[in-house]
């Protein structure tokens, strides 16, 4: 499957915007990715090993947090995984 790396994480993924992995589940794909590029791990996961709160991972058009099997969801070669840090903010003033 194809994993799309967002702009800020490319320096930790060998400069790549797109990477191919052969894993069979979402979790295995992320493990394969961070094994190949260990510097990505601290940007994606907290010290408990779960995805950081502001990191969204989408399997095609689905947020993996809301998939029934979550990271155990099976994937095929045609699937894509997008890593998308959140975008939010504002003045915060009333």
């Amino acid at each position: 499957m194809t994993i799309f790396i967002p702009t800020p994480l490319r320096p930790y993924a060998g400069g790549n915007g797109t990477l191919e992995v052969s894993a069979k589940t979402v979790g295995a794909a992320l493990a394969e990715l961070t094994t190949a590029h260990p510097d990505l791990r601290k940007h994606l996961f907290n010290s408990e090993g779960t995805l950081r709160s502001f990191v969204n991972v989408y399997l095609n058009d689905d947020d993996i947090r809301y998939l029934p099997a979550k990271e155990a969801t099976e994937v095929s070669a045609a699937d894509t995984l997008s890593i998308v840090p959140s975008i939010a903010g504002g003045t915060g003033c009333n």
Partner: peptide, 24 residues
């Protein structure tokens, strides 16, 4: 990009806390 209605064009603490796209 975003707008600050009736507020200066300076980043806020909320903008900073919720900014995660390093290098952008």
């Amino acid at each position: 990009y975003h707008s600050h209605p009736d507020h200066p064009a300076q980043w806020s603490q909320t903008d900073f806390a919720e900014a995660h796209w390093l290098g952008c």
